[in-house]
Design a protein around this nucleic acid. Sequence first.
DNA 1: ACAAAAGTGTTGTTACTACACCCATGG
DNA 2: CCATGGGTGTAGTAACAACACTTTTGT
Lengths: 241, 241
Amino acid sequence: MGSVADTAFPAATHVSVAVVFQVRDGCLQVLAWKRQRDPFRGAFALPGGYLSDDESLEASITRHLAAKVDVREVAHIEQLGTWSDPGRHPSEWQVMTAYLGLVATGLDPALPGDTTWHPVDALPALAFDHQAIVLTARDRLRAKLSYTNLGFALAPPTFTMSELRDIYVVALGHPVSATNLQRVLVRRGELVATGERRAPGAVGGRPASVFRFRTSGLEVTDQFAVLRPPRPPENRSGDGS
Amino acid sequence: MGSVADTAFPAATHVSVAVVFQVRDGCLQVLAWKRQRDPFRGAFALPGGYLSDDESLEASITRHLAAKVDVREVAHIEQLGTWSDPGRHPSEWQVMTAYLGLVATGLDPALPGDTTWHPVDALPALAFDHQAIVLTARDRLRAKLSYTNLGFALAPPTFTMSELRDIYVVALGHPVSATNLQRVLVRRGELVATGERRAPGAVGGRPASVFRFRTSGLEVTDQFAVLRPPRPPENRSGDGS
DNA sequence: ACAAAAGTGTTGTTACTACACCCATGG
DNA sequence: CCATGGGTGTAGTAACAACACTTTTGT
């Protein structure tokens, strides 16, 4: 790939890590485990580890994540980026590829003793450059909630609009109207009503309609926010809708 | 970072490559060089090469790019992603991080003999998985032209709206109105008028105003395409702009 | 005068937000 | 019968696209 003068150097080690988010207890939380060894003994770190022989990064992060959480409960995972500052690890030349993973609200995966959820708004000291990675992951999540159907990975299989609204509020960090959220997501085709209704709570109130996401795979629902291509010059009468 | 069972494996080699785009001769072109050696002898490949000791990926791609083009003429560069399929290189276990680079229209950098521009719409056979990388890069460029000021990296220092329109048409692949493009970019604060005017061509026509981009660094200009946070209840008169 | 290119004014549309008001249930 | 939460209807708005029309030049 390089020119003739290039030869393979003693290669950097490559690790994969994952920022796994879940909305639980009313706040956005991230999975981290407590290091027992130097460097950063006692600090929390993101789950991950070394890339193995003949393994893709996707396979690597899935394998390492499986040691911390049941990966069947991770509804979505995507590559965030690769960090390669030579000084990012104190004693090793290490390149890191980070992933964003999402677990639906309501699940409570079994975790090993060293692993816990931490509110993103009140993070403990994190090892290496992991804090910056977490914030990058949160930015990615917030952006994609706006223009994709990524909510499917944060929400339980079915939900009322109030429940979904609460999830969006926590993930986005700003108020969201359940009324308008419903209309936006239904119009985009992300959400469909199941026809069921949820019984009201002890204090009364009208029973809420139950919704689900139409698909459980990532779809871009608003690709061209601006500068969209011109519509083909259809005749506007007699459209088949 | 990993658990106790993890040890460093014989590490994959890591290469960086760049998809360098320029709008030239009325189409979007990408920089590639012709391989003289196996594998893929005779095919074209993206510029790039091995990661060196104590070097970040950004430094690496800049260094390798410098062998093919004057990097001072690359107006913008950003990480695209990392490809790690074990089978992507026929004889070596190789992880690749790809970058997107942009060169402004009008420049004509000196290139080595093995390196040429290729229209993205008529690519020759590319080595490895480089064709997929080029298409990913084009998608990224098209998306970011819509919601950021990334046009600054494709346009010359100053330009008329017709010239800028032609660049956007080629990069986006669909018609763009110069009239509306001006209003959108000026309203967003991306574009400012220099006050100069460009003399009309031989066939006449009104002289065109000359514009420039306000900044030459990436800025997100339309962060919340949807689900934007509610406006704070300001009094709408007397804003300080 | 006329063609060509640039620029302005204006209307229409989409996809939202905002908010008043109505509906269904439990105590 | 009324508080509570859910849902509907509708007005307001930002940011576009579309297009007719006007301005400024060269021949």
